[in-house]
């Protein structure tokens, strides 16, 4: 799943809705490509946490990939980088999976 643009109180509900739709398909592992996110506030972090919580309840995992430096810094100072698995880049196996549809 790729997210782009700005995540704040105004846009967060759209992200929340996308997660809800995605999780209906029952994936056990979700990797979010955040390379296109140029602004994210605490509302965005809360959406990610909420999605992680729902995934963990079913034994799944939510991982964050390729956050820009400012977003990565927020993950660090909030301690969320120890809650999410954070990848420097989108894992190769996910790119293959995505290209295969």
């Amino acid at each position: 799943m790729a997210v782009a643009g700005e995540i704040d109180l105004y846009t967060a509900p759209r992200l929340q809705a996308e997660f809800t739709r995605l999780l209906e398909d029952g994936p056990s592992r979700v990797v979010i490509d955040m390379s296109g996110v140029d602004f994210c506030d605490s509302t965005g972090m809360n959406v990610l946490l909420s999605a992680l919580k729902r995934l963990k309840e079913r034994g799944g995992a939510l991982e964050v990939a390729a956050p820009r430096p400012a977003v990565r810094k927020i993950l660090q100072v909030t301690g969320l980088d120890s809650v999410f698995v954070v990848h420097d880049a989108v894992p190769e196996e996910m790119l293959i999976a995505e290209s295969q549809g």
């Binding site: 509302t43 809360n46 946490l49 963990k56 927020i74 100072v77 809650v83």
Partner: peptide, 21 residues
Amino acid sequence: VPSVDPDDMRVGGFGLVLARM
């Protein structure tokens, strides 16, 4: 910064801390 318990993730509480920082 609010601590996040991986077993009971409380959502919220980051905003004002981020503003201050």
